[in-house]
Simulated scan of single mutants.
Amino acid sequence: MKQVVVNIQDNRYSFFLELMKSMDFVSINEEVDWFEISSESDKKLIQKGIDDIENGRIHSHQDVMKMGKKRILELKDNK
């Protein structure tokens, strides 16, 4: 089975989708996979995040909260 992804963002071209719906060999799945429509720069950032996780470059929620609290206190003291 072959799959074709059609991204119709302009309503002027919605007739194409209606034409395809009328064909008995076409199955329409209107769910959108957000990753497929993401920009290349977004996909690279997602991959960087995955690489960071796989290579242990992470911080726990607790550590982030401690760093945030420390930074807030530093800013408060510098006023």
Rank of each mutant, 00 (worst) to 15 (best):
I58W: 01
E74L: 10
I8V: 14
I50P: 03
S38D: 01
S22M: 10
F15Q: 14
E36W: 00
G68H: 09
I28D: 06
D33F: 01
R57F: 01
V4A: 14
V64Y: 02
F35S: 05
F25D: 14
L17G: 09
V26A: 08
G68S: 14
V6I: 13
E74A: 12
S41Q: 06
M20K: 03
E18Q: 12
K70R: 13
M20Q: 07
I50M: 05
E31T: 10
R71E: 07
S39N: 02
L73S: 10
L75C: 11
K21H: 01
I46E: 05
V6K: 07
H61P: 08
M67L: 13
D52C: 05
D52I: 02
D51C: 08
Q62H: 11
D63A: 11
R57Y: 02
E31M: 12
L75H: 09
I53G: 06
Q3K: 15
S22W: 00
K44D: 07
K44Y: 00
H61L: 13
R57P: 05
K66N: 07
V5T: 15
F25M: 12
I46P: 01
S39W: 00
L75S: 10
D77W: 05
M67W: 08
K70N: 12
I46T: 04
I37T: 10
R57S: 13
N29D: 15
L45V: 02
G56I: 01
N29G: 06
K43L: 05
K48S: 04
F16Y: 11
Q9D: 11
Y13Q: 07
E18F: 07
D24C: 06
S22A: 12
E40L: 06
D77C: 07
M20R: 01
I37G: 06
V32C: 08
I50C: 03
S22D: 07
M67K: 13
I72K: 12
F25P: 05
N29I: 04
Q9W: 09
D24P: 15
G49T: 01
N78V: 06
V5F: 13
D52P: 02
S41K: 07
M1E: 13
S41H: 03
S39C: 01
G56D: 02
K70L: 10
D24M: 07
K48R: 09
D51Y: 03
I37L: 05
D51P: 05
S22E: 09
D42Y: 00
I53T: 07
D33G: 02
L45K: 11
D63S: 11
V32G: 04
F15V: 11
I53Q: 04
K79R: 13
V4W: 08
E54F: 05
E30K: 14
F35T: 04
